[in-house]
């Protein structure tokens, strides 16, 4: 039985009086890709952001429920959110490189944690960019601005930036929705490689992407988790009528 890396139970989230998550129970197993799907406003991104406490930044948001990372309470008062986000990294929809060189982008997290040894940093840059499948594109221009890269390359550099701090879990919020199909395919292939070392949880609007690369798929609707099962089951024979309708394109 594979290890549960993240457990969450009875998760509710309110934006003011509006209940955005209505009692979600979801566990995640190590070295799997989980796709969260559902129509806009269903709560999937909100849920994803709970996992590394990104919702802390929104004043009106109030989260209740249990969240454990390797058995440790993510919302414990003593939890250091910087450390948490190092373990549970995040990649956003729009590539968001800092306006520095590619090299400085990748080592940003390591610099923050006080690492100065150039050899360590050089190695981290090379291995992270290789893992993110963008090394060959950028190896000759590491000191040029990351903003000079194409969107797909920028996104992979952002992924390398997350990988450099060696997280256990990578959260991705529609990581390819701003990219062309070729760049998306590169990222999808990369994710399949990364799965061997990391646990990946991604929100995607692209159902085909979910079916192609994820091990498990969760379908959210109006703040509720309708169905969470192996991807094969969801796309070949879902249990719930709502899931069937959504993946068949009948609503949403």
């Amino acid at each position: 039985m594979a290890n549960k890396i993240i457990e969450s139970a009875d998760v509710h989230l309110f934006y003011g009086k509006n209940e955005a998550l209505k009692g979600i129970n979801m566990d995640f197993v190590e070295n799997e890709i989980t796709a969260l799907i559902g129509p806009s406003g269903c709560g999937k991104s909100t849920y994803l952001r709970c996992l590394n406490r990104m919702n802390d930044l929104i004043d009106s948001a109030k989260v209740t429920g249990k969240f454990l990372l390797n058995g440790q309470d993510i919302y414990a008062p003593e939890m250091d959110t910087v450390k948490l986000r190092k373990e549970v990294g995040m990649v956003f929809q729009q590539p968001n490189p800092f306006p520095f060189s590619i090299y400085d982008n990748v080592i940003y997290g390591l610099r923050l944690s006080g690492i100065k040894d150039h050899r360590v940093l050089d190695e981290a840059v090379e291995s992270s960019l290789k893992q993110a499948a963008v090394w060959d594109d950028v190896k000759d221009k590491l000191h040029e601005s990351a903003l000079s890269l194409s969107g797909g390359q920028q996104q992979r550099v952002c992924i390398a930036r997350v990988l450099a701090v060696k997280p256990q879990v990578i959260l991705m919020d529609e990581p390819t929705s701003a990219l062309d199909p070729i760049s998306s395919a590169k990222i999808e292939n990369m994710l399949l490689e990364l799965r061997q070392q990391y646990t990946i949880i991604m929100v995607t609007h692209n159902m085909h992407q979910a079916s192609r690369i994820s091990d498990k798929t969760a379908f959210f609707l109006q703040g509720e988790l309708i169905e969470y099962a192996p991807t094969k089951k969801i796309f070949l024979n879902p249990t719930e009528k709502e899931t069937e309708d959504y993946i068949s394109g009948r609503f949403g």
């Binding site: 085909h208 079916s211 192609r212 991807t231 094969k232 796309f235 070949l236």
Partner: peptide, 9 residues
């Protein structure tokens, strides 16, 4: 085959 058609389009 069904699986590949459903999952890989």
């Amino acid at each position: 085959s069904f699986e590949l058609i459903a999952l890989q389009q």
